[in-house]
Amino acid sequence: MTLVNFKNGNRNALVNPLFKDVFNPFFNEAFSNAPQYNKVPAVNIAETEKGFAIELAVPGLKKEDFKINLDKNVLSVSAEVKAEEATETKKYNNKEFSYYSFKRSFNLPETVDQSSIDAQYVDGVLTLSVAKKEEARLQTREIAVK
């Protein structure tokens, strides 16, 4: 299989000089060299009886890329990844991979047990399990009507 690089930039010049290609719209490259991507990962936060589950969608990273810090009641998750540099054996015709970093911070409530926070990274999802203090857990009971 052979990859062919088509560099015919004027094929749509008669129709619209600002529109180059369906896969290369004006707004993606007019203001920067890199395509515009969402810079922060999507987050799901769920509350259970025993605690909270914070899930971050961060595919393509490794466990070593993450930094998770707790400062007072602020839980911060960050990652920093640099793209590989071009070598003599690898010459790029088009390179869109670049530097990627993010930082998300979460204010934890007073009911959280700060000594019991765990992190797990599986299939592109980083899950932080934050336990509640024993006295903060909801006590459920049935109340009789008199």
Rank of each mutant, 00 (worst) to 15 (best):
N8E: 04
P35H: 05
N10V: 12
T111W: 03
R141Q: 08
G60M: 11
N8H: 11
L75H: 06
K146M: 02
D65N: 14
F6T: 07
V15T: 15
N16R: 13
P17H: 13
K63V: 05
N28H: 09
D21E: 14
K90A: 04
P25H: 03
I54V: 15
N44P: 00
E96D: 07
L18K: 14
K7G: 06
L14D: 15
K63I: 01
K39M: 10
F66I: 11
E88L: 11
V125G: 07
K103G: 06
N44R: 11
V4M: 07
S76Y: 02
E55K: 13
V74Y: 03
K72P: 03
E110R: 14
N94D: 04
V4H: 13
D65C: 06
N16G: 06
N16S: 15
A34F: 01
K62Q: 05
S76C: 08
K146C: 00
F52S: 08
N12D: 03
N94E: 12
Y92V: 00
D65F: 02
E85A: 15
L70H: 04
D71K: 14
S32L: 00
K132E: 12
R104P: 11
N28Y: 02
E142V: 03
G9Y: 12
E142D: 00
I54G: 13
Y37D: 06
V130W: 07
A83K: 05
N38Q: 15
K63T: 12
V77A: 03
V122N: 10
K62A: 09
Q114Y: 13
E85S: 14
F19L: 09
A53R: 14
P35T: 10
K103C: 03
R141M: 01
V43C: 03
E84V: 07
V15D: 14
A53S: 12
A136M: 01
I143W: 01
